[in-house]
């Protein structure tokens, strides 16, 4: 289980590289890939937490960053004009 700790960040970096290499990629494909990796990564984080390889504090930290991400998105949504 310890070996898969690096898998989520590797997948995230691969996804960024893929999007950077194909900037005109269809939005539907982009969202599909994001959804698959997001589900997979959430599953891995959950498994690691269940095995005790991730502490509760780190899960709280993750919640904080999820909140930060949401707040940033709300800020950008508020910039819509008209």
């Amino acid at each position: 289980m310890k070996d898969i700790k690096k898998l989520p960040i590797i997948l995230a970096v691969l996804l960024i590289c893929l999007f950077a290499s194909f900037p005109n990629m269809q939005m539907e494909i982009k969202f599909f890939l994001i959804a698959v990796v997001l589900c997979f990564n959430t599953f891995i984080v959950y498994k690691l937490y269940k095995q005790g390889l991730i502490t509760k504090e780190r899960v709280y930290l993750l919640s904080f960053f999820v909140l930060l991400t949401i707040l940033m998105t709300i800020y950008f949504l508020s910039r819509i004009e008209g």
């Binding site: 700790k5 690096k6 898998l7 989520p8 960040i9 590797i10 997948l11 995230a12 970096v13 996804l15 960024i16 999007f19 939005m27 982009k30 969202f31 994001i34 959804a35 990796v37 997001l38 990564n41 959430t42 891995i44 984080v45 690691l48 390889l53 991730i54 780190r58 899960v59 930290l61 993750l62 960053f65 999820v66 991400t69 949401i70 940033m72 998105t73 950008f76 949504l77």
Partner: peptide, 20 residues
């Protein structure tokens, strides 16, 4: 664009946490 950036950020934050 902003939702895909947010979703990507969630994936990456998860990755950072998993790395311990």
């Amino acid at each position: 664009d902003i939702t895909s950036a947010a979703a990507l950020a969630l994936i990456e934050h998860g990755g950072c946490i998993a790395l311990d």
